[in-house]
Design a protein around this nucleic acid. Structure first.
Lengths: 263, 263
DNA sequence: TAGTGGTCTAGACCACATC
DNA sequence: ATGTGGTCTAGACCACTAA
């Protein structure tokens, strides 16, 4: 049961908090399309339509919310800009998914210095359930005794190891994740998380540094100890900025680079 | 004389290239608002309104182009999304500028690990006019004998050097740029370029790697030789993707990190 | 009070996909 | 032929700014 014919705001002009109200006065005014966006977001977060599923047509939503098509349209426009929905002319509007080619380039920024970006070979080192170190627990907002899952893997290009990933996940939300399931899945990890655990990454923050390879790292990446590596610490967030993954990657940038676009 | 009452396309429906045309069929269809966007872009590029200046009101543009306000609005919306225009309710629409606080954070991604981002102290090492190395000339698309300008500088935070920049500019477009003018200018470099040379950076591509400090670099950044540094190679582009700056930065990431947001 | 951008509507028509 | 998203219009009214 979706968020149908709810009151929204009794009359449209009631949406306007005319003048400063005593106390809270943060967004002094919330246009209709933003309220509708929030309603859609709620249903989206609740998994009402599933990854890749289609949401109701603009006309149907307009009828349901008792607004014009243009207003619904503007709400959907923003959700599409936020990469939560994907519009397809003639077909409908769909819940965005990490299985699409397009999305993968958004999250995998490593590019070969020469040639096109080819697919990586994944090799999982281990997948363990354990108590997270304090810093990881804090960032992932783990409850006191909540276990974490640690996944370690190596990504190779042309049989040369380039990325060493150390991934931490909140155990409560990834019950039953094993190295076998990771190995058995062909596509990107985020697509698996989405399909198997109903958890969708919608944005991430990365902190990048240059570090020297220690002995263990050097071994996995087949470089000498002390070689400069790119350290990429990524915190992935789901709906409502809920943290769901901490990923610490070490990139060998001898033949690759991290590509970023400023605009 | 702006791009006034031009034909656009004789009738509106003429905008629709109905059916595949023999030969070129790239964007088989160009909506009105995109054509208007292109016209505004042309005037913007020509410097018709100057950095920070205000463009005509939506109503005036609608009259001029003989379309409805909504259509002009959509064109401006996209230009605002592209960070070329800034809308200010009640005041007008303005040409975006690098002097704004907001914009600076888009291009300066270095953040202290702890505390808020403070202002940097700039120290210019030199500013020379010389023949660019082949790789620089190629990337900047310099004409055969066109000279380049090399600017080197150090950015410090709390009196500790953190960034060593090696900046290359096409000499033909930056006549009269000297170390003195750079030193004498308080704000960000891009704001100076905009105000003094009429050159506006609108986007940039960065390639990031981890490298070891050589002797000279170590000296400027006050670190030991061999310390891992973040190498950030930025190519800045102006209108029409014309390259106008190649910046090679080395960041000491002991107390700072490069922050990136994936969304 | 006037002018600007911001929201919302109702309706028309086009492009695209599917049946 | 139908239904979907995409474009465009004309007009109304609201919020914000500045004179």
């Amino acid at each position: 049961m979706p968020a149908a014919n709810l009151p929204l705001l009794a009359s449209h002009s009631a949406a306007y908090t005319t003048g400063p109200v005593a106390g809270a006065e943060a967004p002094s005014f919330s246009p209709l399309y933003r309220q509708i966006k929030a309603l859609l977001l709620r249903d989206l977060q609740a998994g009402l339509w599933g990854p890749g599923g289609s949401i109701p047509s603009e006309m149907e939503l307009a009828t349901r919310f008792r607004v014009s098509q243009g207003t619904v349209r503007k709400a959907i426009d923003e959700l599409a800009t936020d990469n939560l929905l994907v519009r397809r002319q003639g077909k409908g509007t769909f819940v965005a998914t990490h299985a699409e080619e397009r999305v993968q380039f958004r999250f995998l920024r490593l590019m070969p210095d020469q040639g096109a970006a080819g697919g990586a070979q994944r090799r999982f080192i281990d997948c363990r359930r354990l108590r997270a170190p304090a810093d990881v627990a804090r960032v992932l907002q783990l409850k006191a005794a909540e276990p974490a899952i640690q996944v370690r893997r190596v990504l190779s290009f042309n049989d040369a190891p380039v990325v060493l990933d150390d991934i931490w996940l909140p155990g409560a939300q990834f019950k039953g994740l094993t190295a076998e399931r990771l190995r058995g899945y062909g596509g990107p990890m985020y697509a698996l998380f989405e399909a198997e655990f109903g958890i969708r990454m919608i944005r991430a923050e990365e902190k990048i540094r240059a570090v020297a390879a220690d002995e263990a790292q050097a071994g996995w990446l087949e470089v000498a100890v002390g070689v400069p590596l790119l350290s990429v610490e990524r915190l992935s967030l789901s709906y409502g900025d809920r943290p769901v993954e901490l990923r610490r990657g070490l990139y060998n940038t001898r033949l690759h680079h991290y590509r970023n676009e400023l605009s």
